[in-house]
Each structure stands twice: as structure tokens, then as C-alpha cells.
């Protein structure tokens, strides 16, 4: 199962009234892996939170699959969230629980008594090479294990859409490759849609079918909008093989 994402003239203002996102249009097709690039404060993480349904836009519309997120009832909101995996930048793990409990949380909460819960958790941990860390309390493990545990938890419910904030943060290249492989396998086999937020656009070893650039709350489909010193390298970008995906214009 897979989901497409549409941000339609979305504006988000912070408490001071500053536009974090300003009339942003963005579409992500099913099965795409899109990287949102740009400086800190450009609006990437805000866009991820909007898509996850954690944040409501000040104006505009966010649509994921056939759901308009601003009009969801309680059950529909929960269904949406069980279909979306969110990997936070660094935090997000339940600090006083073990890595195993963290990974199992979505399964044990939503699926109740899962007969093969242990097996599923172990299998995810093996895939991301954190089996030995499963019994440890999450605030006692290093940043790399925490990040991989976040990926494992996000993938636990087999999401149709995966949102990753700074996917390389805390991981060395070998660990990131393992994670990237796990994501890519699900994208190819099940058509999982993936949206990355990455500040410098050097996404390697993760692969993006398309890159979108966030700058001061606006979206661009070319890097030229970014100042030269921060212009991203494009290692890891696949050709736009899926085609058809495009930025709808942005607020620039």
C-alpha cells in the first residue's frame, strides 16, 4: 500500500506571526522518495509535521492519500497515523523504556496481543543491526542505536508513508547504508512513499527520486534558489524515473 501527498497553498505561521511556510505547494507521488532540502529554519521539518498530521496549517490544505488532514475525525486521524511512520531528528524514543519496548510500542498499542510480536521486533532489529541493544534502556544507548531504533519503530506497522527528519544524523555510513537498504526494499516491494528532510541535500546513502528545496518558507524545484555556499551535492539522487512528480509552483 502506498500514499501520495499534496500540500496545497499551505501557510504556517509561528506564535510571533512569522510565516514558517508561505503558500507552499508540493506534491509527492505514490512510491516516490522525495528529499526536502534547505537550511535550518527553511520549513522542512514543519512540512514533515504537517504531513504527519502533528501540525495544522494556518491556511491551505494538506492531503495524504484521499484524506484531507484538516477534516479528519478521530478514527480517521488514528488510521492516518498508523499508516505514516515518522522518524524524528534525534529525540522521540521513550526514554525510560527499553529499545525493545520502544520498537514494539506501535504494535502492542494498535494490534493488541500480536502473537509474533517478539519475532517481528527481533526481525526489525536484525535488519537494522541493533539486536544486542534490545534489552537496554533507550536513554543508555548511543545516538546511532537510538536513531536506528526510531527507524525500526517507524517501520513496525509497515507504513504506507515514511517521513524521516535528517536520516543520516547520528549514523556512520555503514549503519546508514543498512537503514537505507531497509527503506529502499520496502519502497520497491510495497511502494512505500518516502519523504526525507535533509539540511544539506547530501543524502547518501539514502536515495531520492526527486529533490525539493525549502528556503525561508518557500519551495523551489531547483537548487539555484539556495545561496551558492550551501548548494547541495546530488550524490544519491536517482533519475526522476517515476516521472510526473513535480512541484506545483511554491510561494516564491
Amino acid at each position: 500500500m502506498s500514499l501520495d501527498v499534496v500540500l496545497d497553498r499551505v501557510t504556517v505561521r509561528d506564535e510571533a506571526g512569522r510565516a514558517v511556510l508561505d503558500g507552499v505547494n508540493l506534491s509527492v507521488l505514490r512510491g516516490e522518495a522525495v528529499a526536502l532540502c534547505g537550511h535550518n529554519g527553511g520549513g522542512k521539518s514543519t512540512a514533515l509535521r504537517l504531513i504527519a498530521g502533528l501540525l495544522r496549517p494556518t491556511s491551505g490544505r494538506v492531503k495524504v492519500g484521499n484524506r484531507d488532514l484538516s477534516r479528519l475525525g478521530y478514527q480517521a486521524t488514528r488510521e492516518h497515523r498508523t499508516q505514516v511512520g515518522f522518524v524524528f531528528e534525534a529525540g522521540g524514543l521513550w526514554a525510560n523504556r527499553t529499545v525493545r519496548e520502544n520498537i514494539a510500542l506501535p504494535l502492542s498499542y494498535h494490534a493488541g496481543r500480536v502473537p509474533d510480536l517478539e519475532q517481528r521486533v527481533t526481525s526489525l532489529a536484525e535488519e537494522l543491526d541493533i539486536v544486542d541493544e534490545l534489552p537496554r534502556v533507550s536513554h543508555r544507548v548511543n545516538a546511532s542505536v537510538r536513531k536506528r531504533a526510531l527507524f525500526a519503530r517507524a517501520l513496525a506497522l509497515d507504513p504506507a508513508l515514511l517521513l524521516c527528519d535528517e536520516p543520516q544524523l547520528g549514523l556512520v555510513l555503514g549503519e546508514a547504508r543498512r537503514v537505507a537498504k531497509a527503506i529502499e526494499r520496502r519502497r520497491r516491494e510495497r511502494g512505500m512513499t518516502v519523504v526525507y528532510a535533509d539540511h544539506d541535500g547530501a543524502l547518501e546513502p539514502y536515495t531520492a527520486t526527486r529533490m525539493v528545496y525549502f528556503e525561508n518558507g518557500h519551495v523551489f524545484d531547483r537548487p539555484s534558489a539556495l545561496p551558492p555556499p550551501d548548494r547541495p551535492s546530488f550524490v544519491g539522487v536517482l533519475p526522476q524515473a517515476l516521472g510526473g512528480a513535480h512541484v506545483l509552483g511554491g510561494g516564491a
Partner: peptide, 22 residues
């Protein structure tokens, strides 16, 4: 408060967990 700052509450929310209940 710590859970809020550390994104733990947002992570639970994002996983479809009802914060008031849980």
C-alpha cells in the same frame, strides 16, 4: 515536560497513540 521537549509526546502522537489516554 521532558517528554515534550524530547519529542517523545509528538512521537507517540505520530504513532496514533492517544496522549490523554496513554
Amino acid at each position: 515536560g521532558y517528554m515534550r521537549v524530547n519529542d517523545e509526546i509528538d512521537a507517540l502522537d505520530a504513532a496514533g497513540v492517544n496522549i490523554d489516554y496513554f
